[in-house]
Design a protein around this nucleic acid. Structure first.
Lengths: 198, 198
DNA sequence: GGCGCGGTGTCGGCTAAGCAACAGAGGGGC
DNA sequence: GCCCCTCTGTTGCTTAGCCGACACCGCGCC
C-alpha cells in the first residue's frame, strides 16, 4: 500500500476505503478508551474492534501514539466545529468562542480522565495547543488585513495567541474554575487584542 | 471478485472485508427503509449510505430484492436468537417460543409497515415461513430420534410444521390479536404435537 | 416519433485491505 | 541465568473493493 505522504495541501480525493478504515480505527479507539482507559490498550484490540487487520493499522498510523494524537486533534476539532458560529475569520467573537471551547474541553479532561491515565494529559494538552495554532494561522491567512501588524510574521502571531489562549484555559481549568469561564474569556480577549499598551 | 456460491455447508472462513461490507449494506438498507420506506429506494442511495461502491453492491447481491430478502431473514433470525432459550433442539418449549416469536414479528409488521409499502408484505411473510422451515429442519437433524416417525421425510415434516406455525401466527396477527398470543401458541402447539388423533 | 435524463447491471484495470509468517522486544516465573 | 508468552512492527503475496466507462432501459417532455 505504501505510506501516502501527501501532506502538502491537496488531499481532496481520498480513497473511500482509506477514509472508512481511518474512521473505523478512530471510533474503535474512542470506544475502547471510554470503556477501559488507555493503559494496557493494545493495537490488536483496536484492530479487532475496528474490524480491520492489524497490519492495516500500521499502514495508517506509525504506532498507537500517533493514533492517540490524531484522535485528540479530531475530538477537539469536532468540539470547535460545533461551537464556532462562522467557520473562518479572525473576529473577536470567534476568538472568544475559541477561548471558551478550550476552557470547557480542558475542564472536561479533568473530570473524565481517570487517575491512571494522567500520564497522557501532556500529550493531549500539547495537541490542543497545536490545533489552536493551526486554526489561528488559517484564520489569519483568510483575513490578512486583520493581523496585528506587517512587521510580525503570522506564524509568530499564531504561536503567541495560541499559547495565550491555551495557557489561560489550562490555568483556569486547573484552578478549579474559580471565576467563570466567560469572565476569563473576556479578560484574556482584552489582553490578547489590546496587548501590553499602557 | 467472482460470485461466491459456497451455499453448501462450510462458510466458516469468511473474509472479514466481505463480512463487513455485507453488514454495512444491510445496516444502510435498514436505516433508509426506516427513514423513507422501500418505495423509490435506489441502489445508489444504499451504496452511498453504506460507504461502498455501487459495483461492490452487485458483487454481494443480485439486485435490491435479493438484499430485501436477506435483510428480512436476518431480522427474523435476530428476533429468534433473542427469544429461544436453547439454540437448538426440537422441544416443546422451543416450538412454543417459535410460535410466539412469529406472532410478535408479524404483528409488528402490521403496525410498522406503512400503507405505501404494503406491496412488500407477501415477500416478507414468505421469508418468515422460509426461515421457520430452515430452523425446524436443523432442529430435526440435531435430534433425529424426536421426529414424528421414520416413515415421514424430515423435509415434509418441516414444511408442514413451518406452514402451521406461520399460518397460525399470520391469522392471529390479521385478526387483531383477538385471543392472547400465548393462548394461540398453546392451542397450536397442541394441534401440531398431538396431530389429528381423535 | 425523437431526445435527454437518471437508474441499472457489467467489465477490466488499478489499489487498499487481509493473511501468514517473521524477527525482535519486553515481562514474568522459577 | 533460561524459557515461555504476548505484543510489536514488517514483508510478500492474495483478494476484495473502487473507479470509469459502457450498453441498456424506462420515463417524461415537446
Amino acid at each position: 500500500m505504501l505510506v501516502k505522504e501527501t501532506t502538502g495541501k491537496a488531499e481532496k480525493r481520498v480513497d473511500p476505503r482509506v477514509r472508512r478504515t481511518r474512521e473505523l480505527i478512530v471510533r474503535a479507539f474512542g470506544e475502547l478508551v471510554a470503556e477501559k482507559g488507555h493503559t494496557g490498550l493494545t493495537v490488536q484490540e483496536i484492530a479487532e474492534r475496528a474490524t480491520i487487520n492489524r497490519a492495516t493499522f500500521y499502514a495508517h498510523f506509525a504506532d498507537q501514539y500517533e493514533l492517540f494524537d490524531h484522535a485528540i486533534s479530531e475530538a477537539f476539532r469536532e468540539e470547535l466545529r460545533q461551537r464556532l458560529p462562522d467557520p473562518s475569520g479572525l473576529t473577536e467573537e470567534n476568538l472568544r468562542a475559541l477561548i471558551l471551547a478550550a476552557c470547557d474541553y480542558l475542564a472536561r479532561l479533568n473530570t473524565a480522565c481517570s487517575r491512571t491515565d494522567r500520564q497522557f494529559r501532556p500529550i493531549i494538552e500539547s495537541r490542543v495547543q497545536g490545533e489552536l495554532y493551526e486554526l489561528l494561522l488559517r484564520w489569519m491567512e483568510a483575513t490578512p488585513e486583520k493581523t496585528i501588524g506587517r512587521q510580525v510574521r503570522p506564524e509568530v502571531t499564531a504561536s503567541v495567541v495560541s499559547w495565550s489562549i491555551f495557557g489561560a484555559a489550562l490555568d483556569w481549568s486547573r484552578n478549579g474554575a474559580a471565576p467563570s469561564s466567560e469572565e476569563v474569556a473576556d479578560h484574556a480577549l482584552a489582553a490578547i487584542v489590546g496587548g501590553l499598551r499602557p
